[in-house]
Structure formats: structure tokens, C-alpha cells
């Protein structure tokens, strides 16, 4: 293991100051909880010349409720999200996703902003400097071959943040600040399908708030995560669903995935299921949608086909749970 690279540490007191530092210092990186960045720095994956620590910035850790919806400061920690009574009650997917991250020691440091901006992961990338050098590096960092798909020219590193799918199904947007001004974009626009550069954030932009619009009280949401162990692990596949069901009929359905692609994806085509009775056929159609759009590659030590299949199974199961539907004794088919 390498020792921590050297860097200059800045501790701005405001977002504006942080944005100005990012603009002034090429290669500078924001440091929030540090649970993603610091392990990568310990492995020599990141060697930023300057770290801009948001720890001294006030007022970015607030959870605000208003008629228009929920506003979450970027510095809100995952443990805050997991334990906030109103979020647990009204936006269960967010609380469940936050609670599923790593362990309590991570969650009390990690922030929602950091989790949304989590780097993509790959078993050929999240390794030590010696390991990556021995393996001749990779497309994502320092090399010219993707070891996951050596014939291609595309990095397949997978986005593994748990919060993004939960916020996607709730229609969240994010507020971004730069020294030249602020903008609000739909969360889905924060991402692009590129394992190397999956964030559309400009280098001098800071994600400052997450906005979740007020929704019908009938909307229920949840998050389910496939992993090998009951804690610590990143998702092999993570599924969030938001559902309105009336008398066994789907009135609204949103499904989002993480861990399977280089970006979190809001499933397309779910509107075709709206208006349908929740039954084996509907669940089977949902499973097919998931299997078609999830495109896990060999970026983890667990087989990619499993991750696709389990994503579908979790989506089917979660929709049943949220809609109060008991699947028949003959289980929902997964294939």
C-alpha cells in the first residue's frame, strides 16, 4: 500500500469560496465525507494537488421540508437520511438506500452529495498502484485496454451509489453551483453512460442541494439491494421503485437501477405497465424490461449475468411489496 499522496488542503467557509477554489486550482477535488475519495487516494488512484474540504461550510447539512417538497443539503449524511422520521415515512426509498450503504462508520461521514457523485467502480480499477501497474493499467486510468471488454474502446466501470436510484424514482433534481452561477438539472442529467467520465458536472461545479418534489401521498417507494453480505458491500445490483397502486392496478410506476451500468438508470418503458393489473404477466414484463436495460459487465467478482437476473427479481419483488400484491405460489418467473 502506498502512503497517502501529498496535497494542499483548503477549508473554505462557503460554497462560493469552494467553487472559486475549484475554478482556480486545476485538478482540485472536493472532499466531503471522504469515504470514496480517501480509499482511492490511499491506493494512488486519485492524486489531486488540492483538496477542498467542505467540512467547514455551514448550512449544507440541512433537511428542509416545504409544500414544494424536500430539500436536502449536499452535506446531509447518510445516517441523517436513514434516521430522519419524515424521510423514513414519506420517502422510504431514500431512507432504505441510505441505510443500505456500507456500515455506520461510513454512513455518519458519507454525504448525499458524495454518494450521488460516487466514482464508478471496477475490479480492475479499485486496486493498488502496484496491482494496476502490474496489470498494465486500464482504460479508466492510465492504460489503453479495458480488461472487462478488451476488444472494445469503452470503459464499463459501474456506478454503485445507492442513493441515486431512490432519488431518480422520486423525480429529484440537483442544484449545482459554480462561481459563474447556479443551475438546477434533473438528477438523471447528472450522469452519462461512460465509465471514465460518468458525471456531467463541470470541474468547478459543486452539487449543493437535492430537491425532491412533493408527491401524492399514495405514492410508496422502496429500495432493495443485492449483495453477497448483509452489510459493507456495494450493490451487485440495486433497485428502487416508486409505485401508486389502486385496487391491484398500477397507477404509477418508476423503477431505477444502480450497480449494473456506468450510470444509474431510470427504467424506460414502465409507463406501458401503468394501468395494468399486477399479476404474473405484468411482473414478467417488468422483469424483461429490467433484464433488457441492465447491462452489467464483468466489473465485479460476481458474474454479470447474475447481477442482471437478480436486478429483475428484486424489481418484481419490490413492486409486489409496495403494491401489496401476493405473488402466486408458483413464483414470479425470472427468465
Amino acid at each position: 500500500m502506498e502512503r497517502m499522496p501529498q496535497f494542499d488542503l483548503r477549508r473554505p467557509a462557503s460554497i462560493a469560496e469552494a467553487a472559486a477554489l475549484l475554478a482556480a486550482e486545476p485538478g482540485a477535488r472536493l472532499l466531503a465525507g471522504g469515504t470514496d475519495l480517501l480509499p482511492k487516494m490511499r491506493r494512488g488512484i486519485e492524486r489531486p494537488p488540492v483538496l477542498v474540504d467542505l467540512g467547514a461550510v455551514r448550512d449544507i447539512s440541512r433537511i428542509d421540508y416545504a409544500d414544494a417538497g424536500l430539500a436536502l443539503g449536499a452535506g446531509v449524511t447518510l445516517s441523517q437520511l436513514a434516521m430522519d422520521g419524515r424521510i423514513v415515512h414519506h420517502h422510504r426509498a431514500i431512507a432504505e438506500a441510505a441505510r443500505s450503504v456500507a456500515g455506520p462508520g461510513h454512513r455518519s461521514a458519507a454525504t448525499i452529495g458524495g454518494n450521488l457523485c460516487l466514482d464508478t467502480r471496477c475490479v480492475f480499477y479499485n486496486q493498488s498502484e502496484w496491482w494496476r501497474a502490474t496489470n498494465h493499467y486500464c482504460l479508466k486510468l492510465g492504460g489503453d485496454v479495458c480488461h472487462v471488454a478488451p476488444q472494445g474502446s469503452h470503459c464499463h466501470a459501474a456506478f454503485c451509489g445507492d442513493l441515486a436510484p431512490a432519488l431518480l424514482v422520486l423525480g429529484a433534481s440537483v442544484e449545482l453551483c459554480a462561481s459563474r452561477g447556479a443551475r438546477v438539472i434533473p438528477l438523471s442529467d447528472l450522469y452519462r453512460d461512460d465509465g471514465v467520465a460518468h458525471l456531467t458536472l463541470e470541474p468547478d461545479e459543486v452539487l449543493v442541494r437535492v430537491l425532491v418534489p412533493a408527491r401524492s401521498p399514495a405514492l410508496v417507494s422502496g429500495y432493495r439491494k443485492a449483495r453477497a453480505r448483509g452489510a459493507i458491500d456495494f450493490p451487485l445490483a440495486g433497485v428502487a421503485c416508486a409505485v401508486v397502486a389502486r385496487n391491484g392496478v398500477l397507477a404509477e410506476l418508476k423503477v431505477a437501477l444502480t450497480g449494473t451500468n456506468s450510470r444509474p438508470i431510470l427504467l424506460t418503458g414502465t409507463e406501458a405497465l401503468v394501468g395494468r393489473v399486477i399479476d404474473e404477466a405484468t411482473l414478467s414484463a417488468l422483469g424483461k424490461l429490467v433484464q433488457k436495460q441492465a447491462s452489467p459487465m464483468r466489473t465485479t467478482v460476481t458474474q454479470s449475468n447474475y447481477r442482471r437476473q437478480v436486478a429483475a427479481a428484486l424489481a418484481q419483488r419490490l413492486v409486489c411489496e409496495l403494491a401489496g400484491y401476493e405473488p402466486s405460489a408458483a413464483r414470479a418467473s425470472m427468465s
Binding site: V123, W131, A231, V301
Partner: peptide, 18 residues
């Protein structure tokens, strides 16, 4: 010949949860 799981994330020692 390179260990793919040379860490405590991918070498999955059970947690207290399971």
C-alpha cells in the same frame, strides 16, 4: 495470477448481519 480480491470488500468475510 493477480489476486482479484486482495481486500476485505471482495474477500467476503461474513459480517455480523448474516
Amino acid at each position: 495470477g493477480l489476486p482479484l480480491r486482495p481486500n476485505m470488500l471482495d474477500y467476503r468475510v461474513p459480517t455480523i448481519v448474516e
